[in-house]
């Protein structure tokens, strides 16, 4: 019968907490970089010339159909062969996750842009605003409120995806679990605790997002 011994896990709890913090930080960073990519690609798809549209479609379709792990390996092992060697394992992962997120965020932003009522655009144009001004004053602000829930869900997904960073030894939460397991063999305890940490953090993020949505909601 398995003997439960929680001590080794809680002796190393600081390792887990640091890993959790890093995971959250990575998720936020990748979301930010990915959003920039996604916004650019979304506007490229809706407002850009045909070659740009093709390029962004290819990017989105490719990234959405291949595993995250493959993208990580490509960035970490493949980019140095192309001469890009300044990224360590942490930043390789951040870039890989950002590229992965960018594909999904492109679709989210595209839907957000399409969701901005044509009436608002027409009104702005008829006031004499240029396309760029319309984007800056009308499209972006209206879109921001619409995409917020989807962005929140993406953040939670990215947070869970940080666990794959353990494959290239990034010291996030799952890697911490692996290390504690290897050192103490308290398998069930450590994975129960780590699962609980992921669960609690996901609920915390979801709760914060609902709070933000409520503060920021506009009456449609």
């Amino acid at each position: 019968m398995y003997q439960f011994n929680w001590r080794p896990v809680f002796d190393n709890f600081d390792l887990l907490l640091k890993g959790l913090g890093l995971a959250v930080a990575i998720a936020l960073l990748s979301l930010t970089i990915g959003s920039l990519i996604g916004l650019a690609a979304a506007f490229g798809r809706t407002h850009g010339p045909p070659p740009l549209q093709c390029l962004t479609t290819a990017y989105v379709e490719l990234v959405r159909n291949i595993p995250l792990l493959l993208i990580i390996y490509f960035v970490y092992f493949g980019l140095p062969l192309l001469g890009v060697s300044m990224l360590d394992n942490l930043w390789s992962f951040v870039l890989a996750l950002a590229l992965y997120a960018g594909a999904y965020l492109t679709e989210i932003f595209r839907a957000g842009i399409a969701g901005v009522g044509k009436g608002h655009i027409d009104a702005a144009r008829s006031l004499g605003m240029t396309r760029l001004q319309v984007i800056r004053h009308i499209t972006l602000p209206l879109m921001a409120r619409v995409v917020l829930p989807s962005l929140g869900n993406t953040l939670i997904s990215l947070f869970k995806d940080t666990s794959v960073a353990s494959a290239i030894a990034v010291p996030e939460l799952t890697y911490g679990a692996i290390r504690i397991n290897v050192n103490t063999w308290r398998v069930i305890e450590v994975y129960l605790v780590v699962a609980a940490l992921y669960l609690a953090t996901c609920y915390a993020i979801a709760g914060s997002l609902r709070w933000i949505e409520r503060r920021w909601a506009i009456v449609q």
């Binding site: 666990s163 799952t174 397991n181 398998v187 069930i188 994975y191 699962a195 996901c202 609920y203």
Partner: peptide, 23 residues
């Protein structure tokens, strides 16, 4: 809800290392 809140890899490791620990 639990499955929606934990990463796939964590469960894979948990089962892969955990089941042998339970015999």
């Amino acid at each position: 809800d639990v499955c929606r809140s934990i990463p796939h890899l964590v469960l894979i490791f948990a089962i892969f290392y955990g089941l042998p620990a339970l015999g």
